[in-house]
Design a protein around this nucleic acid. Sequence first.
DNA 1: CGAAGGATTCTCT
DNA 2: GAGAATCCTTCGT
Length: 189
Amino acid sequence: MSERLGRQFYTRDTLQVAKDLLGKKLVKGDKAGFIVETEAYIGPQDKAAHFYQGKKTERNKVAFKQGGFVYIYLCYGVHWMLNITTDKEKPECVLIRALEPLDEKAKIEKEASGPGKLTDWIGLNKDFYGEDLVESERLWLEKGKPACRQAGQIKKDRIVSGPRIGIDYAEEWAEKPWRFYIKDNEFVS
DNA sequence: CGAAGGATTCTCT
DNA sequence: GAGAATCCTTCGT
């Protein structure tokens, strides 16, 4: 039995949460997978973030709440992006970029190896905007315990950081090593 | 109410 | 690896 993550997990430093999310189990109804890739979006100073300069809009307002909520939005009119809000009052969040599906078929098809693909596979959409991962009955996170990882923990040396993807317009912020993923994992996009 | 844009994906070279 | 497609949502007027 896995244990559900509590509020205190999400309300910590965003970069810390982004790293700790790796290997955690995302559960939505009968679909579930382990998080293998994340990206951090940090505060008003982050040009790549939607809340750059503290701009608060209808779309991103949930990011201004405390951690543990779902910030999901549609990109390119086609793809849903799943984020999890972090920290307490600051507009920061973590983008879930890839999952390692529990479902064998999905695993073979690699249906969750990409930000847009994973939401398609797991069935997330605007209905989940603002969902509270601590209280929700239909979507939440559990402490991961994949068989392939020792003692339910990912060794530190298996977590790698790198520049974020798809945000070239963010200039110097595009270079920040705020993307975290599990080394050698085939589901990382 | 209309114009603009995009935290991607796919396909082709 | 690079470039184009694509279309719904969002923001501004």
